[in-house]
Simulated scan of single mutants.
Amino acid sequence: MGLEKSDTHPLPQSEVLSPQRIEQAARSALRTRVALVGPTGAGKTTFLAALPIAAAKASWTMTGLDGESERFLGEAADLLIGQRAFPRNTKGRPTYRWRMSTEITVPGRRFFGATTRSTRVNLDLTVNHNPGACDAVIYFFDPTRPHHDPNPFTGLGPLPHRVAVCVTKCDDPSVRTRTTGRQPAEVFHDLCQTSAAHSVREAIAHTFKPENTRYYTTSAVGFHDPAESNGHPHAIPRPVNVLEPLLWLQLGQT
């Protein structure tokens, strides 16, 4: 599959992470159930396909905890890297179970002077499509859609969950011009000014607490010069804000 690692720190400095949760993940695998919410075609499957690519670039490894989950990692990433094609919309509502692992450096203890030690962090991630049976939510907002579900969380609120609101397809030229140099929350609220999406913003505010809500502008394939595509649908993926929402949902400071 050819996943490449880089020197990117496994714990992004842009996130406010919890030392206690990191320590817990170092003692035993930290388990989190994350529900993906959003309409068909909003980018949920492509987001998951890009996840092992983003993870590898940040020195995380991902392994499936069952056969279907392991198979998805191989097949989906091969589509993006080997075939440079987008995965098809997922049929049904599959559940995937993965372990994400990395090595981080933490402060150590000794009698004289400071020291550091390397420790392994394990995150057991279950991904489903049911906000009522999860610990956290990723909501996929597709700004290229002319119509939006007015309340994707009907009958569920208010919830104590964390929610990562991902504005997807930010590599699309029509979206990119509205995201460059702006904070993700500002981008989302601006995009929701249209009558078609205004109710989505209200539904999120009604369902989740502000302190449990974080916004991301995401792209599963990243930003490229058109010349890089070399006749393919897109160039080698460089995911943007794909790993970060999941790390915040699992390790973020409360």
Rank of each mutant, 00 (worst) to 15 (best):
V37R: 00
I104R: 08
P226N: 08
D135F: 03
R214M: 12
P94Q: 07
D7P: 04
T46E: 06
T32K: 12
S229V: 14
S219G: 07
V221N: 01
L36H: 03
A56Y: 00
P226G: 14
I138T: 02
G43A: 03
D78V: 00
T105R: 12
T194S: 15
A76W: 01
A85D: 07
H147F: 08
P39S: 14
I138R: 00
P152H: 09
L125V: 11
N122R: 12
I104G: 07
L11D: 03
E103W: 10
T168Y: 08
R84L: 02
R71W: 02
V175W: 08
I81D: 01
H232N: 14
T207G: 05
G155Q: 08
K57I: 02
A136K: 00
T46M: 04
L51Y: 09
L247Y: 08
Q83V: 03
K169D: 11
T207L: 06
R31G: 03
I81T: 05
S199T: 14
T144C: 11
P245N: 15
T45W: 01
P143W: 11
A26P: 03
T194K: 13
S59Q: 12
R33N: 10
P237L: 02
E202F: 01
R178T: 10
A196F: 14
G74H: 02
V127H: 06
A136M: 00
T40P: 11
R178E: 13
S28G: 10
S174R: 12
L159H: 06
T116K: 14
T217Q: 12
D142M: 01
D7L: 14
R109L: 09
A203N: 03
A227D: 11
R176S: 09
P245Q: 13
Q20D: 14
P150F: 05
H232Y: 10
G82V: 01
T180W: 09
Q253W: 13
R88E: 13
E75K: 00
K57P: 03
